[in-house]
């Protein structure tokens, strides 16, 4: 299946790049730099130590908020999905908070927390955790009652049912939540950095000041590559760790 879609994928990318090139030549680099110009800017950016420092700053700060969001969000989501009381207490908050966009809370968080690690971590956490909570809750609620009953009929205790049925049933969905959550976290981090003009968001701000859009597009392409490779890596890990799910969904 991969063998069949790869040439088609490449064809699609080449076509799009061709269109982009034509449009860029027509509009000029101040409005739409061509892929060739963006590639040139990409080369310059990749040899700039300031770029790697900015990328590193963004990634490690984001990872802390992201990991905290998973560490809190997954258990909370499971608890909400499996326990009506927890659900009743947390769900209104989750439903309200999940619509919060990073841009809406960043100004407030800057005033409350400054602009250091706590601020970045908090923004990433707040934007990501509710997504994780809500998707894990849905998955936990959807765990097949029949399979839970199978375990009960074999005399499995509460703990055993949790360990042998609920956790493995949730595993693929937790991996999906982690993957999509990563994209949410990255977006929130970039937004936060743009407000305080630090790290990668600062680079994006500065590139926006240049009349040529080539450096801006190059930075956006790099961000896409980071996001796509991270999610591809996580998908690969998920497939290795949950082969039953992977081979079932491939069919």
């Amino acid at each position: 299946m991969i063998g069949r879609s790869l040439p088609v994928n490449i064809l699609g990318i080449v076509l799009l790049l061709g269109l982009w090139q034509l449009a860029g030549q027509h509009l000029g680099d101040a409005l739409l730099a061509t892929p060739v110009q963006a590639a040139g800017a990409l080369g310059t950016i990749l040899v700039d130590p300031a770029f790697w420092a900015a990328l590193w700053r963004m990634m490690w700060m984001m990872m802390i908020g992201y990991v905290l969001a998973l560490v809190v969000g997954v258990p909370l989501g499971i608890a909400m999905g499996r326990n009506a009381v927890v659900n009743a207490i947390v769900k209104p908050w989750a439903a309200m908070c999940i619509v919060i966009s990073a841009a809406a809370i960043v100004p407030l968080f800057i005033i409350l927390m400054g602009r250091g690690l706590v601020f970045s971590t908090a923004i990433v956490f707040v934007v990501t955790v509710w997504y994780v909570v809500v998707s894990v809750t849905e998955a936990a609620r959807a765990v097949s009652l029949r399979l839970v009953n199978v375990a009960r009929s074999f005399g499995a205790s509460d703990v055993q049912r949790f360990r042998y049925v609920i956790l493995p049933a949730l595993h693929p969905y937790v991996m999906i939540a982690a993957r999509v959550g990563f994209v949410h976290a990255l977006r929130a981090m970039v937004t936060a950095e743009m407000f305080i003009s630090a790290g990668y968001g600062g680079l994006l701000n500065d590139a926006g000041l240049d009349l040529s859009t080539a450096p801006l597009f190059a930075l956006i392409v790099i961000l896409m590559v980071v996001s796509v490779s991270a999610t591809a890596l996580m998908r690969w890990v998920a497939h290795r760790a949950a082969p039953w799910y992977a081979s079932r969904t491939r069919e």
Partner: peptide, 17 residues
């Protein structure tokens, strides 16, 4: 539940994992 009884379910209901 448990103790001495084995149950076969209508749809087999195997654990997919």
């Amino acid at each position: 539940t448990g103790t001495g009884r084995g149950m076969v379910f209508q749809g087999a209901d195997l654990f997919p994992w």
